[in-house]
């Protein structure tokens, strides 16, 4: 147990979203529908990895167990990950990947804006840096949602399906449990439940332009924030962690 276990868990929640979604997006590298999108998703993935690396380094300092960021990325088991379930879902088709980018990055931007007021100096600096990148991600995903919604019959059918498939995974973004409340009380970060209104407003603006309905209010699949994951996370980790598990500490 770290001296400040709560802070450690809180930082991991932010870091693991970036790490796992970065890993997911990297799967598109070499498989994108067009070269520009291949490059775009790889770049966004790189932004996430950078963010995860800075946060995990900070988490390792809080943990005081002599670990570094690589150890936290490559030597934790699935139940020790704290990401939202949404980010670990398989990429699906391009519409699904884009819909998830859209829902997640709109939420992430609002979360980071809240984090700008954190009492924690590191988290404040992290938010300031990352926001600049995430704004570009939001713009990229929004453009594509509009293009697909207002595109061909096929693209429209697919983006509508993606919205439906993701609906159950949206509510988890706005949940606050005991740890979140502790974090809010200590001024570490924003109250996620308060982000919902702005999120709906921002999503609705793009949906209107795309001629799409808002995603339905799903019943809310949850558990990622406390380490209860879907069956997909283990497979991500198997691929992501393989080399460091087989050859611990390998460097090149």
């Amino acid at each position: 147990m770290a001296k400040d276990q709560k802070k450690l868990e809180y930082v991991l929640r932010i870091a693991d979203n970036a790490l796992i979604l970065g890993q997911r997006l990297s799967e598109w590298c070499g498989h994108g529908p067009v070269l520009e999108e291949d490059i775009a998703l790889s770049n966004i993935s790189l932004d996430y990895f950078g963010q995860a690396s800075h946060l995990l380094k900070y988490a390792a300092e809080i943990e005081e167990a002599g670990n570094d960021e690589d150890h936290l990325a490559f030597h934790r088991d699935d139940t020790e990950f704290r990401n939202l379930l949404m980010v670990e879902l398989p990429n699906g088709d391009y519409a699904f990947t884009i819909a998830r980018q859209f829902f997640f990055s709109v939420w992430y931007q609002l979360f980071l804006e809240g984090l700008l007021k954190s009492q924690d100096e590191f988290l404040r600096g992290f938010a300031e840096k990352s926001l600049k990148e995430v704004k570009y991600h939001v713009q990229h995903a929004s453009d594509w949602v509009i293009r697909m919604g207002d595109g061909t019959e096929e693209s429209r059918r697919r983006i509508i399906q993606a919205f439906a498939d993701l609906a159950d995974f949206i509510p988890e973004c706005f949940t606050t449990d005991e740890l979140d409340l502790y974090a809010i009380q200590h001024g570490w970060g924003p109250d996620a439940s308060h982000l919902k209104e702005s999120w709906q407003k921002n999503v609705a603006a793009v949906c209107t332009e795309a001629g799409l309905e808002m995603p339905a209010e799903g019943w809310g699949q949850r558990g990622g924030k406390i380490g209860k994951h879907t069956e997909y996370l283990g497979f991500i980790l198997a691929e992501m962690q393989y080399l460091q598990r087989a050859h611990p500490g390998a460097k090149w």
Binding site: E36, I39, A40, N43, L46, D47, Y136, Q139
Partner: peptide, 13 residues
């Protein structure tokens, strides 16, 4: 602009 994301993180195409 062809794409917001280019050959490196800091460039657009």
């Amino acid at each position: 602009m062809v794409s917001q994301f280019g050959s490196t993180a800091c460039k657009s195409l």
